[in-house]
Design a protein around this nucleic acid. Structure first.
Lengths: 345, 345
DNA sequence: CTGTTAGCGCTTTCAA
DNA sequence: TTGAAAGCGCTAACAG
C-alpha cells in the first residue's frame, strides 16, 4: 500500500497525491477531494521515512535530557512534544542517564535519524560531539551552556533573580545561617546554580554559606541534609539546587525530629508539580518548563522555517511562596527542642 | 555524504559497505577493516530512513502512554528505552494525555513512522484503532486490556495478590473501616484495580468499603480524601489506586490535623520512587515498571525476531511495608483529637 | 493545474 | 567474497 495505489484509485498521478498530502495550493478542490477520499478508503498513511528521503527533511527533532526520572524532565518533554506536534513535527527523546558514554550514543542516534535539530537539555557535552552536529549544519539549542553561533542557540536561565528573591525572602525572615545543597559539581548546570547562590550572598554581604553537595535526586538531598544537621552550627535555612533535593532534605529533617519551617526553612528550585503537595508544601524558585520548551523549539524550528540565526534567549525565574519557610527560630543552638513548634508564635 | 562515498574511499562497492554495517559474516576481515576505517574517517552515520526503506524494517518501536507527567510512566519509558537500545532498536514515545483525540493522532504517527511494534500502556483504546495496526500486521502489546491474538500480546498484572497482601496487612492491624480511592472510573485500568479491591473485601467477608473517585493524580487524591474525612464514619485505613493519589490523600490528612499512621493508615499502589520519601514513607503495593517494560519489549521484539506468537504474560505485585500504616486507633469516632499521637503507644 | 521522471540512501537479490 | 543493479515510497523539478 503506497502512494501509487492511492493515485490509481483517485485516477491521478502520484505527484498530485503528494501535493494534496503536503497541502499544496496548486490542486483543484475537486481533485483534492477525490484524493482525500482515496486516502481514507485505503486507510493510507504516507511513509514518513520515504518522505524524509525524498525531501531531505525529517520533521524530527531530537531532545536530549539527562534523566527522565527526574520530574523536571517529563514536564519539559511533554511541553516540547506538544509544541512540536502542533507544528507537525516529531520528537525523538534520548536519555543520557548522566553517562558520557550514553551521550555519545544519543548523538549517534540523532545523527542516524537525521534530525532537523537538537535541543540539548543536559549539562555536560563533549565539544567534539557538538562539532558533529555543527559540521552537518544541524541547528542546536542548549540550556545554560554553550554560546550562540550561526545555527546554535542558547537558553540562559536567569537564576540570579530567582535566587535573589529567595535569599531576600529568607533574610527577611531573620535567617543568617543559610546553607545550600548543590547538585553534582561535575555538572555545569549544577555549578551555575551554586554560583548564583554564592554571588547573591556576596552581593548582600552575608558570610559564605554552608555548602553540601547532593546529586539532584532525593537520596542526595537526604544525605546532604543529614550532614548539614550534624554540623556544630546548624543552618536555620537551606536552599536546594532543585526540588528533588529539597524533598530529600525535608525527609531528613523530619526524621531528625525537627520541624519545617519551625526549626528549619527549606527552599527548593524548579517548582515541579509534586512540590505543591509535600508536607509542608515547598517554597521554591519556579523555572517554567513550558517556557523553556517553547523557546527551545522555536529556536530550532525558526532556523529551518524562517531562516533565523542562532541567538541567546533568556528565561526568568520567580519565587513561589508556600509553607516550608518561616521566621528564624529564636534558639539556634542546634540542639533538638521539644517546644520547637512554639517558636512559630 | 553517503554510503557511496564510503564505498569509494574504501574501494569497494556500496553493497559491501552495507554488509559490513549490518554485520554480515560474508565479508573478509580485511575488507571489513578497510570499510570501518573509511566510515570513521568520514564520520559516516548510515541514514536510518533509507535503511528502513530498503529493508522494510524501521527498528522503531512505539510506546504509547497516557501521561508522562505521572512518575509511573517515565520509569517505564526509561526501562523500555534501555532494553530497546540494548537491542539496537529505537523508541518513539507518544503521550495521549488521556485524550481520545490525541490517541488517534498517536496511532497515526506510529503508522506513518512505520513502527515495528507498539506497546500500548494506556487504558482506553478505540477498537477501531487497534484494527489499524492489526490489519498491517504490526505486533501489539497491551497492559491489562485486550486479549492475546496472532500478533498481539497482553500483560496481565496480578493486582489481586498485591491488594490482598495490603488488605491482609491492614486487617491484621485491626482496621475494619477501610476505604478505597479509585482512579477515574472511565479508565479500564482504574476499574480493574478497584474491582480487585472489592473482590478482596468480599472474599474476606468484610463489608463493602467506602469508595471515592480520584483521577490518579495528586489533586484528585487530595479531594477524594477530603470527602472521605467529611463523612460521618471516617475510615481508619485508606487504599489508593496509585501512589500519586495516596500522596494527595496524605496531604489532605495532614491539613485536617490528623496524623498518619496514628489516626489513619494509607496504602498506595505502584511504588514510584518518591513514595519512599514522603512523610511518612508510603506503604504501597509494588508494580515493577522494569518488569513491565522488559516483558512488553520482548513480546514485541520476539515476534519479529523469533517469530513467536502473541501471548499473555503475567506480572506480579507485592506489598512494600513502610511507615504510613499502623494499628487502628482506639477511638474511631471521627472527631479530631489532640492526643492523637498517644494512640500509637 | 497535472503528469513524468529522476533521484533520495540504503538493502538485497542475482551474477560473477 | 564481492559487485551491479533493481527497487523501497515519496518528493520535486520540469514539462505540458
Amino acid at each position: 500500500m503506497n502512494i501509487r495505489e492511492v493515485a490509481r484509485l483517485a485516477k491521478v498521478s502520484t505527484a498530485t497525491v503528494s501535493r494534496t498530502i503536503n497541502g499544496s495550493d496548486k490542486v483543484t478542490p475537486e481533485t483534492k477531494e477525490r484524493v482525500q477520499r482515496a486516502i481514507e478508503e485505503l486507510k493510507f498513511y504516507p511513509n514518513t521515512w520515504a518522505r524524509a528521503l525524498g525531501s531531505g527533511r525529517s520533521r524530527l527533532y531530537g531532545l536530549i535530557i539527562s534523566d527522565i526520572t527526574n520530574p523536571f524532565f517529563p514536564e519539559l518533554v511533554k511541553s516540547f512534544e506538544d509544541i512540536a506536534v502542533q507544528n507537525g513535527q516529531e520528537v525523538l527523546v534520548a536519555n543520557t542517564n548522566y553517562d558520557p558514554a550514553r551521550m555519545e550514543q544519543c548523538v549517534s542516534r540523532m545523527l542516524q535519524r537525521k534530525v532537523d535539530g537538537v535541543a540539548i537539555m543536559t549539562s555536560e557535552m563533549d565539544p567534539r560531539l557538538i562539532t558533529e552536529f555543527q559540521d552537518r549544519d544541524i541547528p542546536l539549542v542548549f540550556l545554560d551552556t554553550g554560546t550562540a553561533q550561526k545555527l546554535t542557540s542558547n537558553i540562559v536561565v536567569d537564576y540570579a533573580s530567582g535566587v535573589d528573591a529567595a535569599v531576600e525572602h529568607i533574610v527577611g525572615l531573620g535567617h543568617t545561617e543559610i546553607a545550600f545543597i548543590s547538585g553534582p559539581m561535575m555538572l555545569r548546570s549544577a555549578r551555575v546554580r551554586r554560583e548564583a547562590f554564592v554571588a547573591c550572598l556576596e552581593r548582600r554581604g552575608i558570610g559564605a554559606g554552608l555548602m553540601e553537595e547532593g546529586n539532584h535526586q532525593v537520596d542526595g538531598g537526604h544525605g546532604a541534609m543529614e550532614r548539614l544537621l550534624s554540623r556544630k552550627t546548624r543552618p536555620t535555612a537551606v536552599l536546594a539546587s532543585n526540588d528533588m533535593t529539597a524533598i530529600g532534605a525535608l525527609g531528613a529533617i523530619h526524621e531528625s525530629g525537627l520541624r519545617v519551617p519551625e526549626d528549619i526553612s527549606i527552599v527548593g528550585f524548579d517548582d515541579i508539580q509534586i512540590s505543591a503537595f509535600t508536607q509542608p508544601a515547598l517554597t521554591t524558585v519556579r523555572l517554567s518548563r513550558d517556557e523553556i520548551a517553547r523557546v527551545a523549539f522555536r529556536a530550532l524550528y525558526g532556523i529551518r522555517q524562517e531562516g533565523s540565526k542562532g541567538a541567546e534567549y533568556g528565561v526568568p525565574t520567580s519565587l513561589v511562596l508556600r509553607s516550608s519557610t518561616g521566621r528564624v527560630p529564636r534558639d539556634t543552638t542546634g540542639k533538638m527542642r521539644e517546644d520547637a513548634g512554639l517558636v512559630r508564635a
